[in-house]
Design a protein around this nucleic acid. Sequence first.
DNA 1: ATGTGACTTACAGTCCGTG
DNA 2: TCACGGACTGTAAGTCACA
Lengths: 78, 78
Amino acid sequence: MHTTSPTSTLPAKVRFGHALRAAREMLGMSQEELAERAGLHRTYIGQVERGERNISVDSMERLAAAVKIDLWIMLTPK
Amino acid sequence: MHTTSPTSTLPAKVRFGHALRAAREMLGMSQEELAERAGLHRTYIGQVERGERNISVDSMERLAAAVKIDLWIMLTPK
DNA sequence: ATGTGACTTACAGTCCGTG
DNA sequence: TCACGGACTGTAAGTCACA
């Protein structure tokens, strides 16, 4: 059945959200910790991870830095 | 010695702006034309190309689509 | 054909809480 | 620890007049 791979890429904000959550969990960080590191609000992180927010480049960049992954990598479609 | 390679990457919005302008010019398009294609305002495109605006993911995605380049590629540091 | 400053309105981003 | 909501505040979106 070949699980998934719907080449029809998901919206960038969704891909970013997934990558962010994955990276954060890999680092064993809580949303609150990440929020603090990135200088953003706790609740906002959650919404971004769920792909619910139309985040700005600057914020993406700060979050990417906080999880130590280059932004462009976080947006690369799997 | 390994000179240069100013890994000290410019802000993402600046990289995006440069990539957008390069792509647009490569396609021989005017800002006005691109604006029409992307459904955005002419002056806004200019501001984005100059890295003056903290653009959102959604807008970046639309612009990337208008110049037919994947967003993540446009953000890849040279 | 583009740059720029100024402007209004829509929504990014905060902060309080609850389960 | 996180999802989710409502009410707020700040700033991006989107437009314009003019250089």
